[in-house]
């Protein structure tokens, strides 16, 4: 078996009549940075949410760090995992949302220390120290005491990244992390993500930032209508796409000047 950190095999997921994911097979190796691109409604975000079990998959199977997610398999029988076991699996991943989802009633520092203190039972002093270091790492050393409402979108998203990192995940999931940001704030978030990629973190990034995908990722996956259409290195997929649908998509996005 491969040493893949994420291993999705023929994953299917539907919402009512809509097939959100259709036979999606994707492996992500440790240390790899994978960008998923594609039009909205193509299933990129759903796939991301399946990895950390915010969505349940309907068919196929998904392994995280070699462990089947959502179920314990005994022979040919599947035993659904309990809520706490799912939470434990989820802890391998950190997630950054499009709309930040910071806890508005907590300061930046408290947002970051909440998980380590409450979930990982870390000491308060130790968690604060780690959180302060993380804030520095995302370039927000002076904002520890600020509430989310007092921060710009870019600053909020960087706090959100720090909050996810504080849980020491093996894998970081980014769900269109810059889509809700003003153009001039996109850069600061991408540069934090770039540093993170350079540090060796395994990352799956759903994004519309083709420049980021080209510069940072090891592999780019193009999805459409719930299927993986094409996979390749950034230069393969973006300079010489094989599939006509990939070409059309890239042309449309580039025409929009992104």
């Amino acid at each position: 078996m491969s040493g893949a950190l994420v291993s999705a095999v023929k994953v299917g997921k539907h919402f009512g009549q809509l097939k959100a994911l259709d036979d999606v097979t994707i492996d992500v190796d440790a240390g790899e940075v994978v960008c998923i691109i594609g039009p909205s409604g193509s299933g990129k975000t759903t796939f991301l949410r399946c990895i950390n079990q915010l969505e349940r998959i309907d068919s196929g199977a998904l392994w995280l760090n070699g462990e089947l997610t959502g179920y314990r398999r005994v022979g040919d029988a599947l035993h659904p995992l309990s809520e706490s076991e799912i939470a434990r699996q989820r802890r391998l991943t950190g997630m950054v949302f499009q709309r930040f989802n910071l806890f508005p009633h907590m300061t930046a520092l408290e947002n970051i220390t909440e998980g380590p203190v409450r979930v990982l039972k870390a000491g308060k002093a130790e968690a604060r120290e780690a959180a302060t270091a993380l804030l520095e790492r995302v370039g927000l050393a002076g904002k520890a005491g600020s509430y989310p409402a007092q921060l710009s979108g870019g600053q909020q998203q960087r706090v959100a990244i720090a909050r996810a990192l504080a849980m020491n995940p093996k894998l970081m999931l980014f769900d269109e992390p810059t889509s809700a940001l003003d153009a001039e704030l996109v850069g600061e978030v991408l540069s934090v993500m770039r540093d993170l990629a350079r540090s060796g973190m395994t990352m799956v990034v759903v994004t519309h930032e083709l420049g980021f995908a080209r510069d940072v990722s090891d592999r780019v996956i193009f999805m459409d209508h719930g299927r993986v259409v094409e996979t390749g290195t950034p230069s393969e997929l973006m300079r010489a796409p094989k599939e006509p649908r990939t070409r059309d998509f890239l042309r449309t996005v580039l025409a929009e000047g992104r």
Partner: peptide
Amino acid sequence: ELPLSREEVDIARLRHVRP
């Protein structure tokens, strides 16, 4: 889990045991 290959594990087809 080894006896089954990866492709053979399909949560839609395997038997689900209710806890």
